[in-house]
Design a protein around this nucleic acid. Structure first.
Length: 228
DNA sequence: CGTCCAGGTCTAC
DNA sequence: GGTAGACCTGGACGC
């Protein structure tokens, strides 16, 4: 592997494993929290894609469909438009340019993305021609508020409240709660009773900028620890 | 075979 | 600002 390739790969892995994220402030916040102190041992780091663009496209592919449909759509994108690695076999997630080069019909007929096709192609062309800038959202600039990031994400085609909250968590912006058809019933199970979106948000407001992460860890505790 | 709906979003009131 | 209705797809389910 060339030095350049090694450097690119290292950067990609840092991005994917989110190695540079500092959650110490959050861990201090939950250190004496009955429900979340368990997470202070190192939980909460989100597995990410190498680029923000890839995360946005994949997120659109999670909306209003089953997880199996998401996998099917993303697999079709990679197999049809992704560049094959030098060693053969593996393919990368396609670039915005590669995705902008095919017509919307491709997304409908081959990817079977349905009405998402226009959103996906619009994202690809927008990023490819520079009208949409996504990678700077990963910069984590402290002078840019969560509200500003949310506004930019909500302006993207196919991204609404769920998608924006989901993407912000990946971008190290943990204020928004991911409220969708998986988290709502899961919350009802963990909590022992149903609750409206507003009631859930009220309950996690005390975590401030980490409300979204607190909510996520509250829901996924059974993924990593034994239940009492 | 018809209906419903899944890790929603957008438009039009 | 809040909320019906439409929107692709395909797997699950009832009949």
């Amino acid at each position: 592997m060339s030095a350049t390739a090694a450097r690119d790969l290292t950067q990609a892995v840092r991005q994917i494993l989110n190695l540079d994220e500092d959650l110490s402030e959050f861990y201090a916040l939950i250190s004496s929290d009955d429900e979340l102190s368990w997470a202070a041992g190192g939980a909460g780091r989100m597995l990410r894609t190498p680029t923000v663009y890839e995360a946005v496209v994949k997120t659109v592919c999670t909306t209003n469909c089953t997880w199996s449909a998401t996998v099917r759509m993303v697999t079709a994108l990679v197999e049809n438009l992704g560049e094959q690695s030098a060693g053969g076999g593996a393919r990368a997630f396609p670039t915005p340019e590669a995705m902008a080069a095919v017509p919307e019909a491709f997304y409908r007929d081959v990817v079977r993305a349905g009405y998402r096709s226009a959103y996906i192609r619009s994202l690809a062309t927008g990023v490819a021609d520079g009208m949409i800038e996504l990678e700077d959202l990963a910069a984590n600039a402290s002078d840019v508020s969560d509200d500003e990031v949310a506004t930019r994400l909500l302006a993207l085609p196919g991204i609404g409240p769920y998608g924006a909250a989901h993407l912000m968590m990946l971008l190290g912006r943990h204020s928004r709660l991911i409220l969708d058809s998986w988290t709502r019933p899961k919350y009802a199970r963990v909590r022992g009773r149903k609750a409206t979106n507003k009631a859930i948000e009220r309950r996690f407001r005390r975590y401030g900028p980490y409300a979204g992460l607190a909510f996520w860890l509250y829901l996924t505790r059974d993924w990593v620890t034994e239940q009492p």
